[in-house]
């Protein structure tokens, strides 16, 4: 019961935060230099036509009225037409967002799982060679520069060895073929996804490993670990049933915190690998003054981060009864 109330409260909080972001973005876009109309106005257009366009767009209205329209448009899913694509922005987002979620959810799950597993193990064998070497490796991974490692992978595995496609998410020939089933298409995406996934995995696994390791080392000093040993449990059971479940908690927190950063890094990854995701679209929209698209990208990225944080909170409450009860 308490659990539901907690989650409910978090959702309310997140909605309030999202509303603040919504408002903040509106203000930022109005403060930012550059005139959205100038892009649409053709050089040959008369001043009359230009001012008509401005009033059509509602840009001559007072700011508060524009804001109300903006909020209304958001809740009705109307994000306007992309300047560049000439299509409704919501359609573009609808195509790009799932690609980003696919790539990042997979990479977060894989790197967190591997980091937790190895962190747990090396903490258990603290001071032995396996601990030293894995910890050094994790530190190296943690400090690698993402675009560099991404380009390096493309250069080696895609360009020289040729195991993976150079970029993109699909091979058009495979998808055009009418006989291609779901599995063939999924395998094609998987093949394209491996290199960006590997890049993100290497960048993130180190930090999860280090957090899990130090959290596990703290946990192993706790009195209840002594209790578990005194009870005559096997060492494996002490490690996996008593130490690890308590050590997971900081890792879960850090997943929540790192999500925002991983989406940032994601824009880089998506750009380097030409992955048709929302991060790459955002960079494109910003550099092309495509205001409606950029605004929608910002909003949806923040929405994804907020939703992911709610999920992390649920997970945390599930793992730690002190929160739940």
């Amino acid at each position: 019961m308490h659990f539901r109330k907690l989650i409910f409260r978090r959702i309310i909080e997140v909605m309030a935060i999202f509303f603040l972001i919504l408002t903040g973005l509106f203000l930022l876009f109005h403060l930012s230099p550059g005139d959205p109309v100038s892009r649409m106005v053709q050089p040959g257009m008369s001043a009359e036509d230009a001012s008509m366009l401005i009033s059509q767009l509602g840009l001559d209205q007072p700011l508060w009225l524009q804001y109300l329209y903006y909020v209304k448009n958001f809740f009705t899913g109307n994000f306007g037409i992309s300047f560049h694509y000439g299509q409704p922005v919501i359609h573009i987002i609808g195509r790009r967002l799932p690609n980003t979620i696919l790539l990042f959810t997979t990479s977060v799950i894989l790197s967190a799982a591997a980091g937790v597993f190895w962190g747990k193990l090396v903490a258990w064998y603290k001071g032995r060679p396996i601990d030293t070497w894995v910890t050094i490796l994790a530190l190296v991974c943690h400090t690698l520069f993402l675009p560099w490692i991404a380009l390096l992978f493309i250069w080696i595995f895609a360009y020289h060895v040729g195991w993976f496609p150079l970029n993109g998410m699909i091979t058009p020939e495979v998808w055009i073929n009418p006989s291609a089933g779901f599995l063939t298409k999924a395998a094609d995406i998987g093949h394209h996804m491996l290199l960006p996934l590997l890049t993100l995995f290497i960048i993130h696994v180190g930090s999860y490993l280090l957090i899990m390791r130090s959290s596990m080392l703290e946990t192993l000093k706790e009195d209840y670990i002594l209790t578990a040993r005194a009870k005559g449990l096997s060492e494996k059971r002490v490690r996996n049933r008593h130490a690890a479940p308590n050590a997971y908690l900081p890792v879960v927190t850090s997943i929540g915190l790192s999500l925002a950063f991983s989406i940032n890094g994601g824009a880089l990854t998506e750009t380097v690998f030409s992955w048709p995701g929302i991060g790459r679209e955002l960079i494109f929209a910003v550099s092309n003054n495509d205001y409606p698209l950029a605004l929608a990208c910002f909003l949806f990225i923040s929405l994804v981060v907020l939703v992911a944080n709610v999920i992390v909170d649920v997970l945390y409450a599930y793992l730690d009864p002190r929160i739940r009860y």
Partner: peptide, 17 residues
């Protein structure tokens, strides 16, 4: 041989019943 611990507060694993 069983043991009754000094710090009963922390002798229980907090995430298990």
């Amino acid at each position: 041989i069983a043991m009754i611990f000094q710090a009963a507060m922390n002798a229980w694993n907090p995430v298990q019943r």
